[in-house]
Amino acid sequence: MNFVAAIGRVFLSFLASTGRLAMFAGVSVSHIFRPPFYPRLLLRQIIEIGYYSLPVIGLTAVFTGMVLALQSYTGFARFNAEGAVATVVVLSITRELAPVLTGLMVAGRIGAAMAAEIGTMRVTEQIDALSTLATNPYKYLIAPRLLAGLIMLPCCVLIADIIGVYGGYLVAVHKLDFNPAVYLKNSWQFLELIDVISGLVKAGVFGFLIALMGCYHGFYSKGGAQGVGSATTNAVVSASILILGCNYLITEAFFSQ
């Protein structure tokens, strides 16, 4: 009996959390479109999410492209299909690896930082202070972050696409002795606009989810330093799981026959 009650409590708690998250997201999104707007805060978040994430995104993309070229080559060489390496690299990078790995890296960097910053503001009463200064915390803290995540992740993924493909090119041409012109031709020949677009759509969704999870867990954190620590962990874990789950759903929507 107690076991059933425990399952029931967990399920009810899950439903309550889901409802609270949905309401939080709805209220926050509504404030993106309602004045007053805070362009200075939006710009700060755009720089934080986009510009300062570029080194880690670039390194992730270049090594991923390099490894992908090497692995594809060693695999395809078994049945004399080395010519497909360029196509596999460009499609894998644009469709899957750039958006997913960029999302996961940014979730670790930005999602954690957002949860920690907003969580600290919560436990030190800074969010309460915003309210007493007649400033809506959803509008001031949450809306700029959601919008910046939505805008900047696609930009970051576009850059990751280019760097990742270049990483594959470096290995293919300088280590595996591919002809540069042929490699580039093969890269372009089978690449379609939908491959890039699907990756950018994923990036937009991932950027929104990363910011949402960071803000949500920070906003509802409590209990001092331990609470902020838990919020940070929960933000990264939940954003990562959502990224992987949504990645499948978006792929299904774009490419299922």
Binding site: T120, A129, T132
Partner: peptide, 21 residues
Amino acid sequence: ARDRVNRKLGMLFQGSALFDS
């Protein structure tokens, strides 16, 4: 409506609650 009322108010918090950024 709450913001309109809060424009009449000022508050000093126990821990000051200054915006550290």
